[in-house]
């Protein structure tokens, strides 16, 4: 039951883009076409889940025992950068088709604040999913990371669909490009606000 609540909360209620404002740059940058949007979502999904697993373990077995939690920011960004590089190398060798689909997005992901944001959230924030406030354990962290990145994909795909239509419509000159996109995201965020209150 709790896993179910985590999933609903992370995808709809606290959507990472529309409610938490993480990962906006790639969200606006690559959502012009549906195909690139799905590619980026896939890559983000993969990296967020993997990065959360690794940073959770680094935090629990390295930083906490040594009492150097204040180094979390530095340690995590290094882990994420190294991880992305490694994923790129492994994918290139083992699965060229997947690499050609996700490859160009991977270098961009290091500076996607969604990855570092989720990793830091998991180890520093206490969550209440129906029960008492507590830090997430490893299983919950992974479910949370996966669900959050699915929420990212959902927002991205919906927005790319809207944007493809938007590019065909007449827009006043000053609104062209990003401004009209931002106003559209605002309305989308308003629609997602309808989910708030479903899960505390």
């Amino acid at each position: 039951m709790e896993y179910f609540l985590i999933i609903i909360s992370a995808i709809f209620v606290n959507n990472i883009v529309l409610a938490q404002f993480l990962g906006i740059c790639p969200f606006l940058g690559v959502s012009n076409k549906l195909s690139t949007a799905t590619g980026m979502s896939g890559a983000v999904c993969f990296v967020i889940t993997l990065a959360t697993l690794v940073t959770y373990l680094v935090n629990k077995f390295l930083l906490v025992p040594l009492h150097i939690e204040f180094l979390q920011t530095i340690a995590f960004i290094l882990v994420i950068a190294a991880l992305v590089q490694m994923v790129e190398i492994v994918l290139k060798k083992t699965s060229p088709s997947l690499y050609s689909a996700l490859g160009i997005f991977l270098p961009l992901i290091t500076t996607n604040c969604a990855v570092l944001g989720v990793a830091l959230n998991v180890v520093t924030k206490q969550f209440t999913f129906g029960g008492e406030a507590h830090f997430l354990n490893l299983g919950e962290s992974l479910v949370y990371a996966l669900a959050t990145s699915l929420g990212y994909g959902l927002a991205m795909v919906i927005f790319a669909g809207i944007r493809e239509h938007l590019s065909l419509s007449e827009v006043p000159k000053a609104f062209k490009g990003v401004p009209i996109a931002l106003v559209t995201v605002g309305i989308l965020a308003m629609a997602f606000m309808g989910f708030s209150g479903m899960v505390k």
Binding site: A19, F21, L182, V183, G186, I187, A189, M190, F192, M193
Partner: peptide, 8 residues
């Protein structure tokens, strides 16, 4: 003050 207002 909430999310939609930020974007708009």
């Amino acid at each position: 003050v909430m999310a939609p207002g930020a974007f708009i």
